[in-house]
Amino acid sequence: MSEAVTPATTSIMETTAERQPLLSRLAPWLVFGLFAAVPLLAHAINDSFILVIATRMLIFALAALSLNLIMGYGALVSFGHAAYIGIGAYAVGILSSYGINDLLLQIAAALVVAGLFALVTGYLSLRTSGVYFIMITLAFGQMAFFFMVSLSAFGGDDGMSLSGRSTLLGADLLADNLALFYGVLIILAAAFLLMRTLVASRFGRVLRGTRDNPTRMRAIGFSPFAFQLTAYVIAGMIAAVAGVLLANQVQFVSPAYMTWARSGELIVMVVLGGMGTLLGPIIGATVFILLEDVLAHFSEHWKLGLGLILVLVVLGSRDGMSGLARRLRGGSDA
């Protein structure tokens, strides 16, 4: 944001959105444009695995994007966010085992269950803060994990294989990897736009203000709890959609999606890309999956390399890679 004194003639309509440098306004187009071009690359070098990796990036980008709403804009570090990916994935697995393969129905079920789970666990978790909040979300995440492990009717520990991908209004649209890729890309773009709108809205402003100074927010007449709880529910529901997509991509559902290590990876993606920035989580998830894939080729101890990179990024810039990019082009860190 500009530090300069604005002339008195400036309209009060002028907002930060209009003052953003050109590059940061173009950045979303760049990121989504590059992703949209991935199938061309895959076709050119005749390697269809690229498409699989790219789809995985987009799915985890969606999950990281949702976590960023509470973590980046609300300072609520949830260590149980993977539970919602699991809820979404099991919505696909369990419904399809009853012959319900429609994507819309599965997404609806995932949203309802994830929303309720977030409402109840959020209501209890948000009574705490700081480290206690992290611990209680971790506990709820693990409860969801162990619940699915013990649910032997739906595969238990072994998980369950799906017979095929979901259908959309009876049509088998997602069977093709290319169609799935673009479907996921469209959903991610929609979620990105939703997030951008939410953050700038009255609701988002209260959330951001509470992140920075909850006492100040109470002193001007806000009760932050309801806003935080709403954000927590929205984040959980979006992560559940990522779970629906993940189950469709790999055609397999397992409690392994819900472990606390998975939740930790989501946090890493958000921090890596830049907490509290709109594109950060998408970039973070992309880099994370890329490193997972590339580094894993060299060594089974690839996470050591990831750890080093994470340390460097966090030390180098408080705002992760998007902060780093901003600093490299000489912008202010504000």
Binding site: I12, M13, T15, T16, A17, T197, L198, A200, S201, R202, F203, G204, R205, V206, F222, A226, F227, T230
Partner: peptide, 13 residues
């Protein structure tokens, strides 16, 4: 109400 989710709050004249 501040439970408004879509309009840009910084543009509320």
């Amino acid at each position: 109400s501040s439970f408004r989710f879509f309009r840009d709050a910084s543009r509320e004249d």
